[in-house]
């Protein structure tokens, strides 16, 4: 099992109140499958994702990665090598070109420059952009194109787990189709574990497993096949 959550809870504590965003969630994720997490706004989907990304530490329960407790791993190394995150708002470096954005994580894991360049160009092509995009800044791209660059960046390091938070939230239906195709091919074609938080029924329909989040609790949705 690539990623498993066992009785994971998390609450946001502020001076004024405590929000129990994730309550006793247990679930498992395997490589080679596309997962969708759906649920109402505020139900805790993003929180769950950030727990899996190691951006937040669970208050209770444990997350294990390849059988190892996430807390025992170096969180920086974990995010650098094992997991990649894709955001609704892309989160590209605005001052770096497309190529530089995609090469950034390769620089972090000390891939030699020439090899990094080759990989970057390769993944940029894989997400359906040609080389003419390499020198552009994110501000010179459409939303759909930016999201593809974000996906290319997530792919570059070959991370086992791809976490995506509403990757199609800002995109039109045609771009959504493209992104769904990409994510599906990553799971099925490259044997990665792809977990997508989404409001989009089309994305949910494409997933192998759908989890539903409701007020911090997670349930697996029955699928009619």
């Amino acid at each position: 099992m690539l990623l498993s959550l066992n009785d994971v809870s998390f609450s946001y504590r502020t001076k004024y109140q405590t929000v129990n965003a994730v309550k006793n969630v247990s679930c498992e994720f395997e490589a080679g499958r596309l997962y969708a997490v759906v649920g109402k706004s505020g139900s805790g989907k993003t929180t769950l994702l950030s727990l899996m990304a190691g951006l937040a530490r669970p208050d209770g329960g444990a997350i294990s990665v390849d059988g190892k407790d996430l807390l025992s791993l170096d969180p920086d190394a974990y995010r650098r090598d094992t997991v990649s995150i894709i955001y609704q708002n892309f989160n590209l470096f605005p001052l770096l070109t497309v190529l530089e954005n995609v090469m950034y994580p390769l620089g972090l894991n000390k891939t030699p420059k020439q090899e990094a360049l080759k990989i970057a160009v390769e993944v940029i092509k894989k997400v359906g952009l040609d080389e003419s995009y390499c020198k552009r800044l994110p501000s010179m791209l459409s939303g759909g194109e930016q999201q593809r660059v974000a996906i290319a960046r997530a792919l570059a390091t070959g991370a086992q787990t791809i976490l995506a938070d509403e990757p199609t939230g800002n995109l039109d239906s045609e771009n959504t189709e493209n992104i769904i195709g990409l994510l599906t091919s990553l799971a099925h074609g490259e044997n990665r574990c792809v977990i997508v938080v989404t409001h989009d029924q089309n994305v949910a329909d494409a997933a192998d497993t759908v989890y539903r989040m409701d007020s911090g609790r997670l349930t697996e949705e029955a699928r009619e096949i």
């Binding site: 951006l55 650098r80 989160n91």
Partner: peptide, 14 residues
């Protein structure tokens, strides 16, 4: 701040 947040989420050490 956003750039640094992105760096950190990509695994850059603080």
């Amino acid at each position: 701040r956003r750039d640094v947040a992105i760096m950190r989420s990509l695994g850059t050490k603080s």
